[in-house]
Write a protein that binds this DNA or RNA. Structure first.
Lengths: 150, 150
DNA sequence: GCTTGACCTCAAGTTAAGTTGAGGTCGTAG
DNA sequence: CTACGACCTCAACTTAACTTGAGGTCAAGC
């Protein structure tokens, strides 16, 4: 009673190629049947659902892999296991909401006031950096050196 | 009284190569001095600051270019011009906070409860999709077809 | 007047997260 | 037993947002 890759794709809405890709990256695993075709379990579908949601939150696959790594791989993860991971989501979302709220407040006094030059702008030297994960080359983010005065 | 590219890089914290890249993409413009070197104005520094902040919010350069396109290019943008753009930021941030708040609530009853299979999960069929811009292949986002039942 | 650092162009490389395609096998329905 | 869709691998392509490098000019100090 396992699922072929096509079935998993159907149930998760994720492309077959993406599922293979995730397996390749070690985010999920699969058994093989006699003919060498992948067979997945229900828990794998859950893992993929997790991946999708985490991605919506802006996590990279690497980060997601790290989270998934906390699940037991000796036995099927149970409710408690998932709850644990879920809680770190909650914290992340809270932090993000907090960051955005602060950003919102600062924006009024910053872009609005015309002070946009970054060496004085609060926005630039804020701690939001970690809280707000945007797009862009992730490997650079947060590495930006402080703008040297003068 | 213009700025050479290195000065602009210093003041914005953005790499010289990135500034050239932005110009290439039409996000900023520059004059040239007698020797063919770029000369920027204060307004360009402001535009770059805007780019950085907008990126933190998860906008793509294309979207940012569209916003910047609303600024007058015949004259130097004034406070009112920037305020206008700033307001659409506010709205976006508000929408994003709203989306995250909803997500947070749903998460409790969704991953936490163990219902993670996406065909029943509220998270999957939610309208957050637009509100939460994460990473990933942007050109695919929101195109995901509804998972066909069965 | 020459050296040195800042600047120039243009092409190619990088990373994430996949997709697309070629060429080939599996399995099931008729 | 054969057709056909679903599956397999592996390599190459895609997009965004840059960076890196090669090979060459500009300008300012000594």
């Amino acid at each position: 009673m396992g699922f072929m890759i096509g079935k998993v794709a159907q149930r998760t809405g994720v492309a077959v190629s993406a599922i293979r890709f995730y397996e390749d990256k070690g985010l999920i695993t699969s058994e093989r049947n006699s003919g060498g075709q992948r067979v997945f379990r229900a828990a794998d579908i859950r893992r993929i659902s997790f991946i999708i949601i985490a991605q919506k939150l802006g996590f990279t696959l690497k980060e997601i892999a790290a989270q998934l790594g906390k699940l037991p791989n000796s036995r099927t993860p149970n409710k408690k296991d998932w709850e644990k991971i879920s809680q770190s989501f909650q914290r992340d979302i809270d932090a993000r909401i907090e960051g955005l709220t602060q950003l919102r407040n600062k924006l009024t006094g910053c872009i609005g006031c015309g002070c946009l030059s970054l060496d004085v702008c609060q926005l630039y030297n804020s701690e939001d950096k970690a809280a707000i994960k945007g797009s862009g080359p992730r490997y650079l983010m947060g590495d930006r050196p402080e703008p040297p005065e003068k």
